[in-house]
Computed example of a mutant assay.
Amino acid sequence: MNKQELVDAVAAATGQSKAAAADTIDAFIGTVTKAVTKGHAVQLVGFGSFSTGARAARLGRNPSTGAEIHIPAAKTVKFTAGKAFKDAVNAR
């Protein structure tokens, strides 16, 4: 599902116009992005949690030459699925 399909599904489920649903989704994504960027975790009960993590610096290899390269430390975004979400995915 891409963003437009998500907008269409939210608009159909809520009875909103597609423009209003798109604005709501954009506001949600923007708010979560700002919170996680500032180091806060965002927990949506039943869905999951968004947070930041740290990836340590490490040595890697260039696949074409085999030469060692230094990969710097970086922050990363983590998503941990909630129990209800996991159960819904696993209920076949």
Rank of each mutant, 00 (worst) to 15 (best):
K38Y: 00
F47I: 03
Q43Y: 03
H70R: 15
G60N: 09
I29P: 00
V7A: 06
D8G: 09
A35H: 09
A84N: 14
A11Y: 00
S49A: 12
R58F: 10
A84W: 02
D23Q: 14
A19D: 06
V45L: 12
A54Y: 13
D23G: 09
K78W: 03
A41P: 01
A81Y: 01
K78M: 08
G39E: 02
F50T: 03
A74W: 10
D26F: 01
V7K: 04
S17T: 14
I29Q: 09
G39R: 00
A12S: 12
N2I: 15
T80F: 00
F28V: 15
S49L: 07
A54S: 14
N90G: 05
V89G: 10
A22Q: 08
A54E: 14
K38W: 02
M1N: 09
E68Q: 15
N2V: 15
K83D: 07
G82A: 12
A91R: 09
P63M: 12
K75C: 01
G66D: 06
I25F: 06
T24H: 00
K86W: 03
R58E: 10
M1K: 09
D8W: 02
D26Q: 10
R92I: 02
G66Y: 13
A57Q: 04
F50L: 06
I71Q: 08
G82P: 01
N90L: 08
H70L: 02
A9M: 09
L6W: 03
A12F: 02
A21C: 07
